[in-house]
Design a protein around this nucleic acid. Structure first.
Lengths: 336, 336
DNA sequence: CATGATTACTTAATCGATTTCGGAAAAACC
DNA sequence: GGTTTTTCCGAAATCGATTAAGTAATCATG
């Protein structure tokens, strides 16, 4: 590896001069600087990120915390899209991505310690149990953080517009003439609260009263659970005319159950999903769903974090809401 | 942050002694060492990975190169499973994961330079164009690498058993009585070559001659392409009785086309996929497919890499074949 | 011309660890 | 008792960068 010392010898200047020349300090003669940069290029010099990080206390490394319990993490297309987008935006600003987890090797560590150990300049947190003490410790530490789909006090967050998304879906379905709308909601996250609240609110605004039996719970991303919930809905004396699923993937379970009972989509039952994953758009009939803008979420999260890292003075915690958009498929029938 | 200097002051010993005590050197009195470790724990001391990396020339950081062009990277469940598994195994050995890419910030870099810049101890390469000069440069560099599903000379590789998998599928289908077997293969990767070769070979061994028209090409992970290929197959005078798809996700395209033409699965057409993604197991009928053991692949890749890094002397390049297993679904009908 | 300002560089300290070499004290040996 | 060996610890160099402070040399100014 060619180091700054090699360059300094080759150019007959001190290491300080080389460093300053490469970093564009003003107290270096233009010609000297040009020459040094030239030689640096010739010799294929690259600064050593480690040495730099040690000296500057800045690693230009962003940690990401994605917990992959039961494929709710990276296995989920939504999160892999976010991750990819975070990565791209971070790289544009000169940051690399490192995964943060517990227990690295034989050292028992929590998330905060891991991030410190790796000198992460900041951490993006998504898809975790936000009530986990280790997560809370990290969020309340000196390390800048940005959370996705969850808000902590005096911390920035990027949020998918779950309220708006749900409202859009309900209004769309209502607009198609549906009045008996069932909602199978996910479980155990704040996202659920948002969507459920929005569902009730929007229905109320539209003058709909939804029977309790029309609201079912099922685990996110679990077709089996959604299938069972669907079965319960189909067993009702007065069936809904439309079922909203917790997410596109779960819908597969509902699809199977409907097929099994010979209920055709959308003729006999309208359905809609949530997420807008690739699958939803290749199914026939194409699934009507609400596509979350994962790319924008990742991008904004990275931007916010870089902002906090690079301009800590001017920064104030911000919650950024990213709207998605309704993807109209062919699974919601118009009824008169 | 509590540093080694803080510890040394607190214990009234030199920094050298602290370092040695914590790293278990033998020239430190047992009691002294115990005391230092005790104090280290009390003060919440964690070694600074950056400083350590600088001094030792080892970052305990593994780079991963996943190129995400058109969702063939992380977006693909197969690769996200591999990544997760690589991560877990690497962490068990005390390594973190950093993504490698081109161009970090304003510095134009190729993969090799990026890996060097970040002091990666090694790189795991998957899902890229292995003919890319930048990839070849990296593989031929001083940085240890392990490739997935592709072999370079004198480098270790972890391979999914594409030959065996394809053979298993063909034999299974043959065993169910099928003789007119069509194969829609993916395009443009060495994986394709393997599977296609194995398809022909196995058919030959079974005494089958496959008409040229039964072998179609379609992009991986692209339901549309597979749908079109399916349409062409259905248009043949003598239709196949079974279609093998390039991967499970692509099969959706075939499924749609079959549905559209009123061809029922498996009564009128048997089908099988490849990969064994979650989706394949929640579809009804359940898709018969060959599940690649992505977890084992990631794990082995990480193990191999750590081996090269930590025992470069004893190491010899190895190709490790990871078998998958046939998942029997309900999409291949037995015919007499 | 003497003094102060500017320019263009260098010296040396620093970040937080690790490790070589050496040295003092204690223990072992003849 | 004197010598050798062992035990235990410290001083200082080192990894590759950055930067505050300092120093010549040149330039400008009254």
């Amino acid at each position: 590896m060619v180091t700054i010392t090699d360059l300094s010898r080759r150019c007959n200047v001190s290491r300080a001069t080389v460093s300053k020349a490469l970093n564009g300090h003003s107290d270096i003669n233009a010609e000297t600087a040009a020459h040094i940069r030239q030689v640096a290029k010739e010799m294929g010099y690259l600064p050593n990120a480690t040495a730099r990080a040690l000296k500057l206390g800045r690693s230009h490394n962003i940690g990401v915390l994605f917990v992959d319990k039961t494929s709710s993490g990276l296995g989920h297309e939504y999160f892999s899209r976010i991750l990819e987008s975070v990565k791209q935006e971070a790289e544009r600003s000169g940051y690399d991505i490192t995964f943060i987890s517990r227990d690295i090797g034989t050292l028992p560590m929590d998330y905060y310690e891991h991030a410190k150990y790796r000198n992460c300049d900041g951490v993006i947190i998504a898809s975790v149990d936000f009530t986990d003490p280790a997560v809370i410790k990290l969020v309340n530490s000196d390390i800048p953080t940005v959370t996705l789909d969850y808000v902590f006090d005096s911390r920035s967050a990027v949020l998918s517009d779950n309220v708006g998304g749900m409202a859009d879906l309900v209004r769309y379905v209502y607009g198609k003439g549906h009045r008996r709308i069932a909602f199978i909601h996910g479980e155990g996250t704040s996202v659920t609260q948002k969507r459920l609240g929005s569902f009730y609110k929007t229905c109320a605004e539209l003058g709909l009263t939804i029977p309790e039996a029309y609201v079912e719970a099922a685990t996110f991303h679990d077709p089996k659970a959604s299938g069972l919930a669907t079965r319960r809905l189909l067993a009702l004396k007065e069936r809904p005319t439309c079922i909203l699923y917790p997410d596109d993937f779960s819908f597969i379970g509902g699809m199977n159950e409907l097929e099994r009972q010979g209920v055709s989509i959308p003729e006999e039952m309208s359905v809609a999903g949530y997420d807008g994953i690739l699958l939803s758009q290749v199914l026939r009939p194409r699934l009507t769903t609400y596509r979350q803008d994962a790319e924008a979420m990742g991008r904004e999260a990275a931007r916010q974090l870089v902002e906090i890292i690079e301009r800590p003075k001017e920064w104030i915690p911000r919650q950024i809401m990213i709207p998605g958009r309704l993807l109209e498929g062919d699974t919601v029938r118009a009824i008169e």
